[in-house]
């Protein structure tokens, strides 16, 4: 250890915990399987969102009059503004995809089972918070897309029986969408959600470290499960290279596709067809199939049911079997929902 390192360690005692964190033994069957990099990649995606988000805050103006122009200014006039906003914009989609894939991997391998329930629960919360990030984030440019998505979103809250209109007003900060809505969404997006997500990620990772990786389920993996590599550098370098690939992809998308910005929000526009971001399209499509009296079923009950099912999953599916091909019920349900969401998304595209 260098002299400076020693000085710091004598005063903080940090070298022990850091060394044990970095030298954590990762089973070889995990290191050799790219499916296990999804969690780390999601975390890298979150870091990218934090960095680009902080940068965007230096120019963003959270007011209905100023928001659109400030985003337009960021996109077209600030040097590299297109890049920072582009990476943030496409990074949001990447987060949703990576978190969802990470969850599917966990689900089909049944790693939510005892003693890893808390890891599954924090993961479920993190997935929904990622969606909340998307929802609060795309209002911020105050363009047509964000305005109308938020209008519909707050009406969805408004369709909850009895307390609906109250909920919708709380969400908007009043009866109509305006200044109060924007600052609410802004504070939620840049302070509340990041804090919650950061805390949950720490718990998620500490839980992973506490229990270790779930035991191997295939024969091949089992043969490899008594060989280990250290977390640093073996595992870290894999995730870092993939993370760099993710960043390159986001940069490429920002450069080749540009970053979208609709016309400024216009509450009386007749020629605009409101559509949510792609990751909410399945829900948007599903809402078409439920007539008047069943509105609350589609808007609230089904999402609550899905969320509830995910929460109780580890407490219901308690057997020892973890091989997906030996668990037709959970595997079937998982495939059904995945296909359903994909089909609804395609129908709405």
């Amino acid at each position: 250890m260098s002299k400076l390192g020693k000085w710091i360690d004598e005063r903080t005692g940090i070298s022990g915990p850091v060394r044990s964190f970095l030298s954590y033994p990762v089973p070889k069957y995990v290191h050799g399987n790219l499916l296990y990099t999804l969690g780390g990649l999601t975390a890298i995606g979150f870091l990218l969102q934090v960095v680009t988000g902080i940068l965007l805050m230096f120019y963003y103006d959270p007011s209905p009059e100023g928001a659109y122009n400030s985003v337009d200014y960021i996109t077209f006039e600030v040097p590299l503004g297109w890049l920072v906003r582009g990476v943030h914009h496409y990074g949001a989609s990447a987060m949703v995809i990576l978190a969802a894939l990470h969850m599917l991997r966990t689900y089909f391998m049944s790693t939510y089972k005892k003693p890893r329930e808390i890891n599954w629960l924090t993961g479920v919360l993190l997935l929904f918070l990622t969606l909340a990030f998307g929802f609060t984030g795309y209002l911020l440019p105050w363009d047509q897309k964000g305005y109308w998505a938020t209008k519909v979103g707050s009406e969805i809250a408004g369709s909850v029986p009895v307390i609906g209109s109250w909920l919708a007003s709380l969400m908007r900060g009043g009866e109509v969408l305006g200044q109060a809505t924007l600052t609410r969404f802004y504070a939620t997006h840049v302070v509340l959600l990041p804090t919650l997500v950061a805390i949950l990620i720490v718990i998620h990772i500490l839980q992973l470290r506490f229990h270790g990786m779930a035991p191997a389920i295939t024969e091949r993996a089992k043969r490899n499960s008594r060989k280990f590599v250290p977390f640093f550098p073996h595992w870290v370098v894999t995730d870092t290279i993939l993370g760099l690939g993710l960043l390159a992809l986001l940069v490429y998308l920002s450069w080749s596709q540009g970053v979208p910005l609709d016309f400024p929000a216009d509450p009386s526009a007749s020629d605009f067809v409101p559509r949510p971001e792609w990751y909410f399209l399945f829900y948007f499509q599903a809402l078409k199939y439920f007539p008047g009296s069943l509105e609350a079923v589609a808007t609230i009950l089904i999402p609550l049911f899905i969320f509830g099912t995910m929460i109780v999953l580890p407490f219901v599916d308690k057997g020892d079997e973890r091989r997906p091909w030996k668990k037709p019920v959970t595997t079937g349900v998982g495939i059904f929902y995945t296909v359903l969401i994909i089909v609804l998304t395609i129908l709405a595209w």
Partner: peptide, 12 residues
Amino acid sequence: KDAWRTVEQSGA
């Protein structure tokens, strides 16, 4: 009046 601002609102 929209919170602390007075603004022009529109609708159809």
